[in-house]
Computed example of a mutant assay.
Amino acid sequence: MTYCVGMYLDEGLVMLADTRTNAGIDNISCFTKLQYFHVPGERMIAVMSAGSLSLSQSVINMIQDGLPDPETGQVETILTVPTMFRAAALIGEAIRRVHRTHDEAMREKNVSFDVSIMLGGQLAGRTMRLFQIYDAGNFVEATRDTPFLQIGDHKYGKPILDRAVTMQTPIQEAVKLALISMDSTLRSNLGVGLPLDLLTYRNDSIDGIETCRITEQDPYFTMLRERWSAALQAAHRDIPPPDWKSNTNPGQPPLNR
């Protein structure tokens, strides 16, 4: 299992992925799920993947090798596509090609076709964009109303993002929220694990990329996990108990059991 989150902000992009792959209880490995393609002054395109590692690696290799444009017939790669929309379409076509190649054999082995890709970035002179591409090759785009996307096991990390992330969120605050979201997932799902890969990108900069790998020994992430846990415990202790439980409200009928 995997958890990846991408945030689409006025200031830029935040993309965070775990690195755990799980092919059984005794076969747990670490693989990078976040990578980026950068041509200085021209483009910065980052991708994160979830689902079957073999399928996602096939897709990523295919978009680097190239596929023919359906209109012109010219081979396009992730480094030559003219727009971010075409980059999303290229990944969608790569997923469909991988599906045509492997789906029948996978079904014979009772293995589901499971892959999803998150794509974010910008080409010089064009708009920064963030997409989520599904296993059918179709995709959706982050908007001002929905400024973050998730792939993999997203349910544990979603509540904090729903409450706190907007387009106006500064990148540094967004990084903090992404890490809290990841910590919630790490605590509830053993299929998601450290180390983490983080990328931030400044809007309209093309070369304004920062990346880091966060391990168990990272002092900031350790501090964040401890303080967030303590804050949650303090918050629920500070909320008054329900009055029906203490019978302090004589006008309230007893709770039926």
Rank of each mutant, 00 (worst) to 15 (best):
R126D: 14
P242R: 05
V111F: 11
R237F: 11
A174N: 04
M223S: 14
E71M: 13
D103W: 12
A234Q: 09
P170V: 14
L255W: 14
D243W: 08
T21D: 03
E173H: 10
S29K: 11
R100C: 15
L90P: 01
S112G: 09
G41V: 06
N22R: 01
F131T: 00
G120F: 08
Q252T: 03
P70Y: 12
V47N: 00
P253I: 01
E141W: 10
N203S: 15
Y8G: 00
S54V: 11
E71P: 00
G193I: 01
L161S: 01
E141K: 15
Q233Y: 11
L198I: 04
M48K: 04
L149H: 09
A231S: 12
D243V: 14
F148H: 10
R20C: 03
V39M: 06
R202M: 02
R96E: 10
Q233T: 13
A88D: 04
D183C: 02
L161W: 06
N27C: 05
N22G: 04
T248I: 07
S112I: 12
H154Q: 08
T2V: 02
A174V: 09
Q64I: 08
A88N: 07
R126H: 14
N203V: 07
T101Y: 12
L232P: 00
T143L: 10
M106G: 02
L90Q: 06
T143E: 05
E93M: 11
I117P: 02
T83A: 11
S29V: 05
T19D: 04
G24M: 09
M44H: 12
R126C: 12
T19F: 08
E108I: 04
M106L: 15
E93Q: 14
V165C: 04
S58G: 08
A46I: 11
P253S: 02
P250L: 05
A87G: 13
Q233V: 09
T185Q: 04
A50M: 06
G73L: 09
S112Q: 15
I91P: 00
C4P: 06
V115T: 05
A142T: 11
S52P: 01
Q233D: 13
L13M: 11
P70V: 08
A23K: 06
M62E: 06
T215I: 03
A50D: 02
G73F: 13
Q64G: 00
D26R: 08
V175S: 03
I25V: 12
D10T: 14
I171F: 10
M1L: 07
I117H: 04
N27D: 15
G66V: 07
F148Y: 15
Q64C: 13
T146S: 12
H236D: 07
N110R: 13
A88Q: 07
A124D: 15
D162W: 07
N203L: 07
Q150M: 13
L194Q: 04
D69R: 05
Q150L: 13
K245F: 11
A89G: 06
E71A: 13
T143I: 10
S54L: 13
L130Q: 00
I28C: 01
L67G: 02
G51H: 04
P253L: 07
S188C: 10
D197P: 00
R187E: 14
P82T: 03
